[in-house]
Amino acid sequence: MALLSRKERNLVLDPLTDDNPITVQVLGICSALAITAELKASVVMAVSVIAVLAVGNVVISLLRNVIPNKIRIIVQLVVIAALVILVDLILKAFAFELSKQLSVFIGLIITNCIIMGRFEAFALGNNPWHSFLDGIGNAGGYGLILIIVGFFRELLGFGTLFGYKVLGDPIEKTGLYALGYENNGFMVLSPMALIVIGIIIWVQRIKNKELIED
């Protein structure tokens, strides 16, 4: 017996590729540019957004029949804000260094358009279980791009991955650096994140021509 029905599986898998929030829906670009200079920050951001969006979708879905239509945005905001504060406090308690490094960006999950977008487009009209899967899928697709961008930016910009010097030591000139390799300072600047995302979008559209807009 399959754990998930076909529809349920698509709810999770589609946003990872052909309905990706960043590369196809073009949502949540701002944080993708801001915090992807290092892989660790990207991963934490991805996990935080998955937590907020999955739980938030369930909460909104449970409340969908009692939320008055006129004030639904403000209700959604309250739910997001509560969850984001929760994530922020958990990070402060268990990963203080990291939380200092991510500083304001965890708080800014509130403004991440993907979350509000999924509440509006999905959670308000579907049952909690489907909403949960949809949240996992969309935040996962967002996190996937974040991690890909973070991987290339940290590897080429700092020569490290998760802080480990995978390409050698730039000061003592070991590994690749002994051959005259140097870190690419442009990768650390945010314009390069935009270009890396652009390249991902380009490659994705070469593979799947249906995604090309007019």
Partner: peptide, 10 residues
Amino acid sequence: AFLFFAYPTW
């Protein structure tokens, strides 16, 4: 410009 921002020491 790419060279300038990527490898400023050169």
